[in-house]
Computed example of a mutant assay.
Amino acid sequence: MWSSVQRWRGVALIGATSAVAVWLAASGQLVLYIHPRYILFTVTMAAIALVLVVAAVASAASRRRRDDEAPVSRGERALGLTAAAIAGAFVIGMLVIPPATLSTATAQQRQINATAADLDALDDAADADDATVARFTVREWSGILRQTSDLGFFADKPVTDLIGFVAPDPDDPENVFYISRFVITCCAVDAQPLGVPVHQPGWQAELPVDSWVRVSGEFGANPSESSLQPLVVLPDAIEAVEQPSEPYLF
């Protein structure tokens, strides 16, 4: 019995992990963990692993084996069973617990807009037509705000249907929140939070933290005396929306 556990533990875990990766890709949820550019590679490698697992099982079933291994000590047995249990619990958890996007807790740990200085954003916005400005996401607006606080620059550049999740401004959480998104370069481990400040006194009464919203309005001087953000969106409309199928920006 123990020799079988030792022999097939790794094969079973590789197979289960690969199956989880394929399942996440098929259900459209793998994008919650990795950049879309890596999905094809990941699925291909997982499929190859599954083929090899099937081949290993078929090969073992085609011949009879005798267990002639040396006796296993109690410590080795316990260590092996513990490792298998931990790995098995991880795989089962991936299947049972629905994948979730990164949240405000992660955004606060990694500091919103620490990487928002997109050097091309300001120049691109200066020459952009109305249709292009209307398509700006949190990525573009946060990059622009990091480079200028000149209200004249924003005079003819309204915010249109900006979508993100709600994260409180740490300096004035009563009156200002960030409409936020995570930007991913490789996978969720390197995700960096970006956000655009919105002035809406008493927003907590209607907008739960981490809820997704669509905001339209215009930039103006921040009325808050506590917030460190010089400019904020003064909203004309704030609407609750469903989380996008691709919640991250790439």
Score class of each variant (00 low, 15 high):
residue 1 M to C: 05
residue 1 M to K: 07
residue 4 S to E: 07
residue 5 V to I: 12
residue 5 V to E: 03
residue 6 Q to R: 14
residue 8 W to A: 00
residue 9 R to F: 10
residue 9 R to Q: 10
residue 12 A to S: 10
residue 17 T to G: 13
residue 18 S to F: 00
residue 18 S to D: 02
residue 19 A to F: 14
residue 22 V to C: 03
residue 27 S to W: 11
residue 31 V to W: 00
residue 32 L to S: 09
residue 33 Y to V: 15
residue 34 I to T: 05
residue 35 H to A: 10
residue 42 T to R: 02
residue 43 V to K: 04
residue 49 A to R: 02
residue 50 L to Q: 05
residue 51 V to F: 10
residue 55 A to K: 11
residue 55 A to E: 02
residue 55 A to C: 04
residue 59 S to C: 11
residue 59 S to L: 14
residue 62 S to C: 11
residue 64 R to L: 10
residue 67 D to H: 08
residue 67 D to W: 02
residue 70 A to N: 08
residue 71 P to F: 07
residue 74 R to P: 00
residue 74 R to T: 13
residue 79 L to N: 03
residue 80 G to T: 15
residue 83 A to M: 15
residue 83 A to Q: 11
residue 85 A to P: 08
residue 87 A to H: 04
residue 91 V to R: 06
residue 92 I to C: 13
residue 94 M to N: 13
residue 94 M to W: 08
residue 95 L to F: 13
residue 96 V to P: 13
residue 96 V to Q: 12
residue 98 P to K: 12
residue 98 P to M: 04
residue 99 P to N: 14
residue 102 L to W: 05
residue 106 T to Y: 09
residue 110 R to F: 08
residue 111 Q to M: 13
residue 115 T to F: 15
residue 115 T to V: 15
residue 117 A to G: 09
residue 119 L to W: 07
residue 120 D to N: 12
residue 120 D to Y: 11
residue 125 A to R: 03
residue 128 A to L: 12
residue 129 D to C: 08
residue 130 D to H: 15
residue 130 D to P: 09
residue 133 V to Q: 05
residue 133 V to A: 00
residue 135 R to F: 02
residue 138 V to R: 05
residue 142 S to T: 08
residue 145 L to Y: 03
residue 147 Q to A: 12
residue 148 T to F: 06
residue 151 L to Y: 01
residue 155 A to L: 14
residue 155 A to F: 01
residue 156 D to G: 04
residue 158 P to T: 06
residue 160 T to H: 05
residue 161 D to P: 04
residue 164 G to F: 07
residue 165 F to T: 00
residue 166 V to T: 06
residue 168 P to S: 06
residue 168 P to H: 10
residue 170 P to F: 11
residue 173 P to I: 07
residue 175 N to L: 03
residue 175 N to E: 10
residue 177 F to C: 07
residue 177 F to S: 05
residue 181 R to M: 10
residue 182 F to D: 02
residue 184 I to F: 04
residue 186 C to K: 12
residue 186 C to D: 14
residue 187 C to K: 08
residue 188 A to S: 13
residue 188 A to I: 12
residue 189 V to H: 14
residue 189 V to N: 14
residue 191 A to T: 04
residue 195 G to L: 10
residue 196 V to C: 02
residue 196 V to T: 09
residue 197 P to I: 06
residue 197 P to L: 11
residue 202 G to S: 09
residue 203 W to C: 00
residue 207 L to I: 01
residue 210 D to C: 06
residue 211 S to W: 03
residue 213 V to D: 00
residue 214 R to Q: 13
residue 216 S to A: 01
residue 219 F to S: 00
residue 219 F to H: 01
residue 219 F to D: 04
residue 227 S to N: 08
residue 239 E to Y: 12
residue 239 E to M: 13
residue 240 A to L: 15
residue 244 P to A: 11
residue 244 P to I: 05
residue 245 S to F: 09
residue 247 P to L: 07
residue 248 Y to H: 09
residue 248 Y to M: 08
